[in-house]
Design a protein around this nucleic acid. Structure first.
Lengths: 118, 118
DNA sequence: TACAAATATATTAATATTGCTATATTCATG
DNA sequence: CATGAATATAGCAATATTAATATATTTGTA
């Protein structure tokens, strides 16, 4: 019953978790949610995105256990499940604050890619 | 010049970074590399994977500036660019250590999915 | 019951990522 | 310069993710 997950599976879990954070919209959602509970509507307004888009990304975060939902009448309020998620975001911020050369290069590349795609 | 919002791009950078960690093989690579420099060969042997598979994942980590490569004769040695990456892995570990219910559920789901796929 | 508000889910076409296998590239040495 | 060793990259089919739109579901209220 207390069978410890094999190493491989643990790493898959971690990977899945990181993958859940691997989308700009979801990062934006979490940057808001880390400061407290928010309804879908509030999130939608903050991000200025379509309702279904927001719900879809929230569903992904829910599926990966990053956030949890609480129903209150017809509105659903989301919270970050573990405050450690905030730490992840902070660490990421620090990383891009520190070795700027790398991130600058990445920025340029991202911009070039985006241009190419239009 | 239309100046694109800076915040958005920062979050895209973060997302790209997390995406780089969003694969079991890459998590495994980083769990080794965080303890010090390793050659491709060493990594390949530790993970028991094909050479080209390892190189491909290393290329992705390089592209996202997670690791850097140093050439030494015909062998290439990789290191983690920022020790903060180790912190990310630790935080992830803590997350899966704490709210076990969630991760257990995720584990079961992952296993079910894997079975379904065969 | 009917209706509106707030969310969620289904569908699907466009893109992106994976996992292979095969082929290049780079570098040291005879 | 031919060769072998260590890495890297190309090419491509199979999957997975995304974005956009349409449709459901759930809940409160008249």
């Amino acid at each position: 019953m207390t069978e410890t997950p094999r190493r491989f599976e643990l790493q898959t879990l971690k990977a899945e978790f990181f993958k859940a954070l691997g989308h700009p919209t979801r990062v934006r959602l979490l940057e808001i949610l880390r400061h407290g509970e928010r309804s879908v509507q509030e999130l939608q307004q903050s991000l200025a995105l379509d309702q279904s888009v927001v719900s879809q990304h929230l569903a992904i975060l829910r599926a990966k256990n990053v956030v949890s939902a609480r129903k209150d009448g017809t509105t659903v309020r989301y919270t970050v499940r573990d405050p450690a998620v905030g730490e992840l975001l902070d660490v990421a911020r620090r990383i891009f604050g520190s070795h700027l050369e790398g991130s600058r290069t990445m920025l340029r590349e991202l911009q070039r890619e985006q241009r190419r795609r239009r």
